[in-house]
Design a protein around this nucleic acid. Structure first.
Length: 205
DNA sequence: GGACTGATCATCT
DNA sequence: GATGATCAGTCCC
C-alpha cells in the first residue's frame, strides 16, 4: 500500500456510543448510516430523523415499568428494540443508556443510499400506492418495510452483521432541527425529535 | 395547507 | 375491551 493513499474504512459504532445519554445519542445518530444485511442482500440509508424516549417520559413504552414488550428497552444498550404497531407496522429503536434504565431512540426516517430497488420492491409489495415508491424510508413503518426489519430483529446486537450503524462525524447543531415528537398524546412538551436539515429542501416538515 | 378515517392485531388493563 | 412511537386515501378550505 502506498503511504498517503486514503482508504475509506467502514467502522461500526462501538458499544461505547450506545452507553451515553439518550438525548445525545438521538442527535448523534443523525447523518450516520444504518445498514441492513438480510441473507447477503444489503440495504443502507443515512439516518435523517430520530426521536428519544427516556426517563420520566409518559410517551415512552418504558414509562410504566417493565413488561414483556418493552423488556429490550431495559436490556443492554447497543441492541435493537423492534415492536409491532397498529396491527401492521414495525418500529425500529436503538437501545441506549445502561442496562436497567429503559430508554431508546426511535429511528423515523432514512435517506436511502444502497439497495434502492430492493427497498422499493419491499415497500410496494405491501403498499400499492405511488407515493410509497418515491418516499421509501420516510416514516418509521415504511423504513422497517424497506429495510426488512421485523420482530425477528428484536434484541439483535447492533455490533453484529444483520443490522448495524456506521461511524460518521456528528452533525453541527446548526444542521439539526428540534421539534416535539410525532404521534404521541402525552409528553408533547418535550422537544425530543431531531431532524437533519437538508439545505436543498425548502421546508423540513 | 390540514382534518379525519379505515385498516388490522399484539399488547395492556 | 381499548389502545396505539403508522400510513395512505379522502374530503374540505
Amino acid at each position: 500500500m502506498h503511504a498517503g493513499k486514503t482508504y475509506i474504512i467502514h467502522m461500526k459504532l462501538p458499544l461505547k456510543f450506545y452507553q451515553r445519554p439518550t438525548l445525545t445519542i438521538a442527535q448523534d445518530l443523525l447523518g450516520k448510516i444504518l445498514v441492513r444485511n438480510k441473507n447477503g442482500v444489503i440495504t443502507a440509508g443515512e439516518i435523517i430523523e430520530t426521536e428519544a424516549y427516556g426517563e420520566n417520559d409518559p410517551a415512552s413504552h418504558a414509562f410504566r415499568g417493565l413488561t414483556s414488550r418493552n423488556q429490550p428497552m431495559f436490556g443492554p444498550p447497543g441492541r435493537a428494540y423492534v415492536y409491532f404497531v397498529y396491527g401492521m407496522y414495525h418500529c425500529f429503536n436503538v437501545v441506549t443508556e445502561k442496562k436497567g434504565r429503559g430508554a431508546a431512540v426511535l429511528v423515523r426516517a432514512l435517506r436511502p443510499i444502497r439497495g434502492l430497488a430492493v427497498m422499493g420492491r419491499r415497500v410496494r409489495s405491501k403498499n400499492k400506492s405511488r407515493l410509497a415508491l418515491t418516499r421509501t424510508c420516510a416514516g418509521p413503518g415504511k423504513l422497517c418495510l424497506a429495510m426488512a426489519i421485523d420482530k425477528k430483529l428484536n434484541k439483535t446486537s447492533l455490533l453484529g452483521n444483520e443490522i448495524y450503524i456506521l461511524k460518521r462525524s456528528s452533525l453541527p447543531k446548526s444542521q439539526i432541527k428540534i421539534t416535539p415528537r410525532i404521534g404521541i398524546k402525552e409528553g408533547r412538551s418535550k422537544l425530543w425529535r431531531f431532524v437533519k436539515k437538508e439545505p436543498w429542501t425548502k421546508s423540513v416538515q
